[in-house]
Computed example of a mutant assay.
Amino acid sequence: MVLLSRLTRRALTCVAVIGFVAASIPAHADETGTWQSVKKAGVLRCGAAVAPPYVMRDPKTGEYSGFFSEICRSFGQNVLKVKVEFVDTTWDNIVAGLQSDKWDLSMALNDTPEREKAISFSAPATDYNVSFVYNKNNPKVPKGAHTITEIDKPGVTVAVMSGTAQDKAISAVFKQATIMRLPGNDETRLALMSKRADLLADANITNMLLTEAHPEWASTIQPTPPLAQQEVAFGLRKETPAADIAVLNKYVDEQVKSGSVNRLIKTAVQAMLVTNK
């Protein structure tokens, strides 16, 4: 019993020491890190450019939803234990605002080599590629089209949100069609629905919302090969410590593996479908 008692005490001492060391490592990293600054301020600022279902904003209440908004809100409240504030911005300014410390995280950014030169990225929450929505009755769009060559024709107009990943993607491959750059998602959809544009270039998930909301006229072209296949993640300032990025990565990975992100996507899609009815 004496031997057992001594072994038990030693084991408990080892556990206590290991626990102390493990706890002290992130605490030390936090003392000069991004998240420590956020904790001192008491608020996590999330840069928000609207792109359903990633980031959505109720025009009447100003409330944010969408699956990236929910991940950002949950990370701030449940991991950092602070309030969460969404800062309105545009896709043209989403990177510059982050660099100038107007917010702490940029939501739903495509991880591209160009952006990696300016900012850091978290682990991805989902994948992305560009698709095109068109009116089934539009004679300018060939039925069964599945390549860029089939739709990149003189007289064809493609609407896209200015400054987005899809803007950069189509600018690189469209040589003959006219690109209509507009400030937001509502404007691009209106351009297509009013027939000022023949095609709407957007994220595959976002375009899925439009076709499911309007199956009577809307159809999708998913280019072959996929256009701008990328990962969608949070953007962080370049100087963010690796330890802080690891904290966010761990949380994002957990949300993906648990199926939480897929559930949030489905919820956002359903909300959009109800809104568009």
Rank of each mutant, 00 (worst) to 15 (best):
K117S: 13
N135L: 03
D101R: 12
D111I: 07
I94R: 09
K140D: 05
E114G: 13
Q99F: 04
V141F: 09
K136T: 13
S122W: 12
S122Q: 10
W91V: 02
I94E: 07
V130S: 10
K140C: 04
V133G: 01
I119V: 14
I148V: 10
W91S: 00
N137V: 07
A123D: 10
P142C: 07
I119S: 04
Q99D: 10
A145Y: 07
N110K: 02
N138V: 02
P142D: 06
S131T: 12
K102W: 11
A108I: 05
W91L: 02
A118I: 14
A123M: 06
D111T: 12
P139V: 08
E116H: 15
Y134V: 01
L98Y: 04
K140W: 05
T89H: 02
L105N: 02
G97R: 04
R115S: 11
F121Y: 14
A118N: 12
R115W: 13
L109P: 05
N138K: 09
V130K: 05
D101V: 09
A108K: 00
D92K: 08
D127S: 03
N93T: 02
A108F: 02
F132Y: 08
D127P: 08
S120H: 15
K143S: 15
D111S: 13
T89E: 04
N129E: 13
D92W: 08
R115H: 13
D92C: 00
W91E: 00
L109Q: 09
T126W: 11
T89V: 01
N129C: 12
I148L: 13
N135T: 02
V133M: 02
S120G: 15
N135G: 00
N135W: 01
G97L: 05
D92V: 00
A108E: 00
K143V: 15
A96G: 13
D127G: 05
K140N: 10
K102T: 04
P139A: 06
A118T: 14
S100F: 13
D111P: 11
V95D: 06
V133Y: 01
V141K: 05
P124D: 09
F132V: 10
W91H: 02
D92R: 07
